[in-house]
Design a protein around this nucleic acid. Structure first.
Lengths: 209, 209, 209, 209
DNA sequence: TATGAATGAGTTTTCATTCAT
DNA sequence: TATGAATGAAAACTCATTCAT
């Protein structure tokens, strides 16, 4: 990832917010320039075009979310007693706090046509990394799982994450909380059918109530 | 829903496709007019503004998907042996065939600011109707469920639908198939725990309350 | 050549003058719009881009000069007693009167890079037509000339025309008149060496000294 | 002519090429700065404005071509057996090699409006010098010529030079060669009518046929 | 001498909209 | 119902120039 000058960095941060809220087509360089307290042509001293700015913004957003994802998996937390639990449970908070995440999702869902290849590739990497972090933890917690099941629960977990993303897009916090609870419960139930004997997970959910 | 003249109807259909593919900001009336084989100002004989056209398009898309949803629930099908099964299993096909669905989702996820209230209200109705269709079937199939569980499986089911929507946005058919399989399996597993007397799940939730 | 609406025709005529005086790079659509008594975007109802406008202007200018050239050769005139004489002798007048000619020459000498192929091709046709008109007259007047000499006097004549064009670009009318006289004399002298027997031409140039 | 620092000299050379190829309007200081391996504002350490740069470039080009012209007349060469013969015969080579010549001609033919007086004056001086070099040689070679004829052959010769310039602008090397041959022959023929007795020129042109 | 940052003016072009026909 | 013509506003982008460093 390119390093940016201090000014470029500042513009980039503002642009992330703007693109997150209004998308590529709905954002004008004029607006972003004004946010950055400058006139439109000054932006061109830092970025050679709208596309370049958007590309940099996207890379930045991607990197921010990668790092956050990593930290979710690295952090010791009761919630991580089910693999990926922390990430899922602070997702709403993250979404609200992080324009990067909002920008990333918007880009991934509805990329500006001309940058579609770049965005697709970047987002697929992101998803692959998510899976790569998740799967070993799952395998460790459920040693008896065969590869097929491992893949299946990876898919299910990523599906749940996406489902929550969508709910964050348009629903109320209450609806979000209900969906989170419902999906996590269903997911836990399914896993519980696999498990034999006691496990941290068990103590977690029982103790959690 | 307003009835439209034949021409307006035709324009509307073309506009649904256009808005589905490019969104509100990325679509120009000129392009739509050309698709409709007319000149831009002619559109104003049918719709008083871009916003009005978009509103009508949105209502149409909503109505189309409402009808389709209804028919999914009405149709007798092996897949409906699990409530909502048919809808879930033909979702990919529907998505590809129906610009209405693509347009509806795009509008719901990222509405043009000025039409946000309209779109939110419309889409919430749509979700409410979905729930209203789904819930009685669930209650019928699992008579032992209490209201809390009914709500929870409604939430889970809708969450799964949204998760699949997202996968349709950016993933390959293979990835989509895997997600569908994974989520449906997890969902079925969870339901299966309800059916036979006591189960780890049962003890889990009952102890949890 | 495309037929244009009345308005487009009007714009085209104004644009020919503008481009003739300032060249492609030095002309702005804004200026041309104001000349045409309209606002800039209105031009786009008639021409899809600056390049298209320039192309049409060029074709128009070319066509105008083709027609004029033809008429020079068709007109009965004492001056045409030497082939191409009329064209050469009214060139200064034509240059002043015809923005088409000025525009054409500017385009041919220094074409805007992006339209170079179009302009080159068009201008080469123009030169070829000029030659095609000139050569038979020369052959008729000097039946004893072989092909090699015919080609040579074609080349010389066209060279003289270009030389006069250049003088029109930057010189005074007096300088132009001197050049015309000098080149025409030299040219006539050379031809006189070929000639056998008397001809209208002879009496013309000798009386002209 | 102002003396320039080494850097300014370097910039000037690069700018000559740029202006030669794209003209005043088509050249941007940014491009020139990049060619000079610097940033745009750095140019202003050497030249106070685009106009000043262009003026200096023009003076340089003019000076270069003056010197070259002088050397053409000074050089002993078989080709100079007809006055001005060397200059005419290496014109194509010079044109290709010298951005100065290309820049000079472009400036002379289509000067940027604001610098027109400067350029006109400079170019007229150039033409006057050309004439001043040429005429005495002509007078020496053809002692019998009166002033009127001397002027006339000066005009013709300069006309031929311009005609060749134009051919260099847009034609192929073959077309150029044909024009050169044709004009030189016509010119020589005319002179041959004046001459009495043998001269180097006679043997040259007769052998050339 | 060089430059990063900034900018007012101006470029071509697009857009939603209006209006007379 | 349709459209040719027009336009104010705004888009992305370029340019010559300035200025503090």
């Amino acid at each position: 990832m390119k390093t940016l000058s201090a000014s470029a960095e500042r513009i980039c941060c503002l642009a992330i917010e703007h693109f997150a809220e209004r998308g590529y087509d709905g954002s004008s360089l004029n607006d972003i320039a004004i946010l950055a307290n400058m006139r439109k042509p000054s932006l061109y001293a830092h970025f050679s075009s709208k596309d370049e700015l958007y590309s940099v913004v996207f890379e930045r957003a991607l990197e921010n979310e990668r790092l956050h994802m990593q930290s979710c998996f690295d952090t010791a937390s009761e919630l991580n007693s089910v693999p990926g639990g922390l990430l899922v449970h602070q997702l709403a908070e993250r979404y609200q706090a992080s324009a990067s995440l909002r920008c990333l999702l918007r880009a991934a869902f509805y990329p500006p046509e001309v940058l579609r290849p770049l965005i697709s590739a970047g987002f697929e990497d992101y998803l692959a990394q998510m899976r790569q972090l998740f799967r070993p933890l799952l395998a460790q917690r459920y040693p008896q799982m065969d590869d097929t099941d491992l893949e299946l629960y990876c898919d299910a977990w990523q599906g749940i994450v996406d489902s929550l993303h969508v709910e964050l897009l348009y629903a109320t916090p209450e609806a979000y909380a209900r969906r989170l609870k419902a999906l996590w419960r269903v997911y836990g139930d399914s896993l519980s059918l696999l498990r034999q004997g006691s496990s941290p997970y068990v103590s977690y959910i029982t103790s959690g109530r």
